[in-house]
Design a protein around this nucleic acid. Structure first.
Lengths: 105, 105
DNA sequence: CCAGTATTTCGAAATAATCCGAAATATCGC
DNA sequence: GCGATATTTCGGATTATTTCGAAATACTGG
């Protein structure tokens, strides 16, 4: 994974609205969540929400799928796994933290 | 962990220079790395580097410790573990991804 | 306490992000 | 194709981030 890509994904999660939005999608699981529902749930204007969803899609953390007249948003789990892996990758190589202990086990 | 805190930490990692810097510290392990060494390693002006280190310290991902005349920077592993945990927390509750399989095991 | 090295603060310009209303676009069922 | 519903694009004002040189500050060793 490229550092530049990871930085963009982290930046896209580094905004309270987008993080809230992303976590709502993660919680929604594989059925996803419609833009309109997210709008109601988060209580923010449609144009602002659309802007943030777009950013999350550009970094590959979220994708959309049309179902009838609505667009359903999904968290792209593999992308998140890769990102977390990238962060944990070199984690605590020398300090023997929990994460590295789990890796060793 | 507060969403606001997580967002700030993610944002602080969401910049190529800071991510590179942070990963250098992670790789350095418990011995850490002096500001001056980081400056040479990353090849960026001291004032810019200081600015980015400050941001990482404000979010709690990095801390400094004085050793003689130099300031040594350290990655704060527990903060990273909490952040990764926050992201993985609700990950794939319904989709059965790798992470949730590991959690179940 | 002075010289020397290490790091931060200041200042200021360039660039980018955030926000949201209004208008535009997309899709479906009929 | 028309009307209804859903979502995005546009415009632009406001605020925040990034950058780095120069000056200021912090600390140690002697």
């Amino acid at each position: 994974m490229k550092l530049e890509t990871a930085a963009q994904q982290l930046a896209s999660l580094g905004n309270p609205i987008r993080l809230k939005l992303y976590r709502a999608l993660v919680r929604a699981g594989h059925v996803g969540c419609a833009c309109g529902v997210l709008q109601d749930k988060l209580g923010i204007p449609a144009s602002t929400l659309s802007h943030h969803i777009k950013q999350l899609m550009e970094t590959g953390l979220v994708y959309q799928e049309r179902q009838g007249t609505t667009l359903v948003c999904h968290a792209h789990y593999p992308a998140m796994e890769k990102l977390v892996g990238y962060l944990a990758d070199e984690c605590c190589a020398e300090s023997g933290c929990e994460v590295s202990k789990e890796k060793a086990a």
